[in-house]
Simulated scan of single mutants.
Amino acid sequence: MPLTKISAPRHLSSSQVQALAAAVQDGLVKTCNVPPKDLFQLITRFDTDEIILDPHFGGVNRSKDACVIEVVFLLGRTDDQKRALFRHVAEQASLAGFRADDIMITLIENSKMDWSLGLGLAYADLHAKAK
């Protein structure tokens, strides 16, 4: 049940940003054991001057098309799964016209107690009742 946030420049086409969103979900499913229907994405578009990213930090060459992807999900993925996710998303995004240098991904892990899916209830409590 990851929550994916994609920050993209406004000048990119909607279809290109949707392809990036699809690449992220596909990567989560194929590399991190996320069920295909666990799809929660927020896409935010920014004017060029509202995305401030060092163009060369980390040994890459970011362009004006750079996007930032944040994935918040439950603890439990291995370092190899995370590496595979990064590669998969970059490869799939490249097929959609992105440069791999323009795909920045950050992962944030937490526990079931850190989520409420609604009704003011902790996911940990719902999960405990289901057992």
Rank of each mutant, 00 (worst) to 15 (best):
Y123N: 08
M1Y: 12
Y123S: 08
L107Q: 05
P9I: 09
L3I: 14
N110H: 06
A90I: 06
N61C: 07
D49A: 07
D49R: 03
K131M: 15
K5S: 13
T78R: 02
G120T: 09
L126C: 11
A96H: 03
S94L: 07
Q41P: 03
A128C: 08
F46H: 15
S116M: 00
C32P: 05
I69P: 01
L12N: 05
Q92E: 14
G120R: 01
L95A: 10
F57N: 08
P35E: 12
N61I: 12
L95K: 14
L20T: 09
Q81K: 01
T4P: 00
V71N: 00
A21T: 09
L53M: 10
Q41H: 03
R87K: 14
Q92C: 02
D102L: 04
D114F: 04
T4H: 07
H11T: 11
W115D: 05
F46Q: 09
L126P: 00
S14H: 13
V68Q: 08
S63K: 07
A93G: 04
G59S: 02
D26P: 00
P55L: 05
T48K: 12
L28S: 07
L74N: 04
L28F: 00
D26Y: 12
P35H: 12
D49M: 09
R45D: 00
G58W: 06
Q81C: 00
